[in-house]
């Protein structure tokens, strides 16, 4: 199969890219790592379009310290999340998640902004954003706004981004001293999209988990916050938390797993994640 025909233009500044995006009025798309977009063009799943290549825009790349938050540029590669010390110390879930994405070659090109904008329901990074209460910084030719991750993911491959907006960066609150972050997933083969995955964040003191947030991926159209399980955990009842998943989650059945199996795995992962958080928190 030969790829869909596309136009190509390489932007030399963020402003130029945003200007082009606006004037294209829906007939153009940003090209970041290309690891999702180019694959869909190659499979003729995407319509004819014009690509605005933002790979040269280094100001969109990198991780910086912003006091109580870290800022990660949209063009930051998955590989950088894996290796950057600031990520490891302030938002370790991102580093742990990045390693689970595909294979090294793909991680070297694929970007954070691309992953969030693409909004694959089985992707790791969108769930991290939701669990860690990150803000997505969206920018258009004449505006910049911060969108809380929870309201950014609107549906299957759908986000709150307007047609003329790009993701500029994300801002992630730094992990506090008691905070533990765990990312676990189950995939048939390493590098595959997960059948089920979760991101857990909680302050761990002894056996107790406070401020816990659990975001699942691969279980719905968007990353799913398991609210019932979160409050059960708050109350210290892991069994109740696992039981609550039946209400929190409504997983799909597909070729790779039935809904029942996915729900079962969600419970297994929750127990494992809590056990690890407690162990890392120094409790037994």
């Amino acid at each position: 199969m030969k790829a869909t025909r596309v136009g190509y233009w390489r932007a030399d500044s963020v402003e130029a890219a945003l200007g082009a995006l606006r004037s294209a009025a829906g007939s153009a798309q940003l090209l970041a790592g290309g690891q999702s977009l180019v694959a869909s063009l190659n499979l003729r799943l995407a319509d004819e379009t014009n690509l605005i290549d933002i790979n040269g825009l280094t100001e969109l790349e990198g991780v910086s310290d912003e006091g109580d938050r870290i800022r990660v540029g949209a063009l930051t590669r998955h590989r950088t999340l894996e290796t950057a010390p600031l990520v490891a110390s302030s938002a370790p879930a991102l580093a742990e998640a990045a390693v689970l994405i595909a294979h090294a070659a793909i991680r070297t090109r694929g970007t954070l902004g691309g992953s969030l904008a693409y909004a694959d329901p089985a992707a790791e990074l969108p769930a991290c954003m939701v669990a860690l209460e990150a803000d997505i910084v969206a920018r258009s030719a004449d505006d910049r706004r911060r969108i809380p991750a929870e309201s950014f993911f609107e549906g299957l491959f759908q986000t709150a981004l307007a047609e003329d907006e790009m993701i500029e960066a994300v801002e992630v609150p730094k992990a506090g001293p008691l905070e533990r972050q765990v990312v676990l997933e189950l995939a048939r083969r390493s590098g595959d999209y997960a059948m089920v995955g979760l991101v857990l964040r909680a302050d761990v003191e002894g056996h107790a988990l406070a401020r816990s947030r659990i975001a699942y991926f691969g279980l719905g159209a968007v990353p799913v916050l398991a609210r019932g399980a979160m409050s059960a955990l708050e109350a210290g009842d892991l069994d109740a938390a696992v039981a609550a998943l039946a209400q929190d989650l409504d997983p799909p059945s597909d070729l790779h797993a039935s809904a029942e199996y996915r729900l079962h795995l969600a419970g297994v992962l929750l127990r494992r994640a809590v056990a690890r958080a407690r162990a890392e928190g120094g409790s037994t």
Partner: peptide, 16 residues
């Protein structure tokens, strides 16, 4: 045929 692609038809890979 539901899985005529390399994402859904799982060939064994080195890591496993």
């Amino acid at each position: 045929l539901l899985n005529a692609n390399m994402a859904d038809y799982l060939v064994p890979m080195a890591a496993e």
